[in-house]
Design a protein around this nucleic acid. Structure first.
Lengths: 252, 252
DNA sequence: ATACTTAGTGTATAAAGTACACTATATACC
DNA sequence: GGTATATAGTGTACTTTATACACTAAGTAT
């Protein structure tokens, strides 16, 4: 920041509260879910809301999101990404609250979640059946998170963050289908995922009726920064924006 | 936001300051520039910084960015987009300051800028020759803004926001080349831009030595939300994330 | 008339995306 | 052992998009 002409004097400024809200996604029996918390008091008493809370004074934004995530789910070390900052002056009727929205992806099968099935005030909801409306502007935030997740699925390896450590290629394909909401071709999917070279073979299988399912692991190299469905070399590993096609390229 | 278990009590919380910083891009003689302000006091006295300032208590985030933009340049009604929120606890040595970064695109030729050429403390810098380092974490913010601009150029009509109201197709191509940093093929560019159907003919020309230059105007329909270099129909008009290719699609 | 500049069109080739049929392999079950 | 069944692929033809580059067309200045 850089206030331009005014003298710096913190006490002159009435300050907004700053919070983080986290959209926590996971797969539960092959369907995408997100975590909501039931509000127990005004405002929006009885409404479902995203988990979130105030940023502490000496805490990084990402750390605040991680802390909220852990408080709510008991889970650490998951994929976390800042989405957008929502600051409409009247979004919270109590006072001015600016909220920095995050998205987290967790592997339901690996991290055992603290969220109990019976809890009535903290629950996983399938994204296709969210209670409506949510508290505050959380409908907007969840819609945005879903959009971002769908987009990034197509040019990053985000999908792996939702799967258990080992998985089959058809499970991966199924994950893509669930989130993108469309059917993918099996043969083409095999080719693409193999060509992308992001899978590491395991010697594990899962046996059942037919041919045993081969299980794979996500190649951990390059810090989860490999891309799957696009080959353009010059894509920058920015925080969120996608580099797409370059129009009518010609060598200089 | 939704603090989960704690009682809401604003006075309990020490609050960070919240500012907006704006990366203002424009084209000046065919080169991409951005606006910087020289700091006159501690911290980073004498360093160049992005224009920015505190968010007022009852002001929307976008409005704060717009206000800073207008204070610095005298320009209104330009393209404005939120980028990312930077909140590392020590980014400002004075106190905890969370900054919401914005990007603005302005047409140097249209809006007459208040920024005088002679001013020593407010200046346009070519993006390839920025002073280094900038104050605070502004190097990081400008790098991110450039990344976002380059990305979005390829799947949105953002480039038009940098051009004057009427322009030739070769000027448009030149803008793309400047920002993307690569040469594009003239013939293919003509075809693509025509096919995208985002240009409206004017009866204006600009005469010179050879055949007069035909001038065009950006089709204002659909609220600047048309896309140029990609044809996928299902791209959602979100705030920033890009929908790219869908892997191996098949009709359901 | 010629040079010069913008404004295009034509076309061959390469690369990527898509649909769909087909083969291969390892297990369970009878 | 044979058959059903599920995963795990391969083959291929076709379409769409991308790219390079040569070429034509048109209007103005000299």
């Amino acid at each position: 920041m850089s206030e331009t002409a005014t003298t710096y004097n913190p006490s002159r400024y009435e300050r907004p509260s700053v919070t983080v809200d986290v959209v926590i996604f996971t797969l539960r029996n092959r369907e995408l879910h997100l975590l909501l918390v039931k509000r127990s008091r005004w405002p929006f008493e009885g409404f479902w809301a995203l988990p979130g809370g105030f940023i502490e004074m000496h805490e990084d934004l990402d750390d605040a999101a991680r802390r909220e995530l852990e408080e709510e789910t008991g889970v650490r070390d998951v994929y976390l990404e800042q989405l957008y900052t929502f600051g409409e002056p009247k979004r919270d009727p109590r006072t001015r609250v600016i909220s920095i929205a995050y998205m987290a992806l967790i592997r339901a099968d690996v991290h055992q979640l603290r969220v109990s099935e019976e809890s009535t005030d903290v629950r996983w909801f399938p994204v296709r059946e969210l209670p409506q409306p949510l508290a505050f502007d959380h409908d907007q935030i969840t819609a945005y998170a879903l959009l971002r997740l769908r987009s990034k699925l197509e040019y990053t390896t985000l999908a792996f963050q939702l799967l258990p450590e080992v998985f089959s290629i058809l499970e991966l394909k199924d994950t893509y289908e669930q989130i993108l909401g469309e059917q993918l071709d099996k043969g083409n999917f095999y080719r693409k995922i193999k060509e992308a070279d992001v899978l590491e073979e395991t010697n594990l299988t899962r046996e059942g009726r037919g041919r045993p399912t081969r299980l794979w692991r996500f190649k951990p190299e390059r810090g989860d920064k490999q891309f799957v469905f696009r080959w353009r070399e010059d894509r920058s590993d920015d925080r969120d924006s996608a580099t797409l096609l370059t129009p009518t390229r010609k060598e200089n």
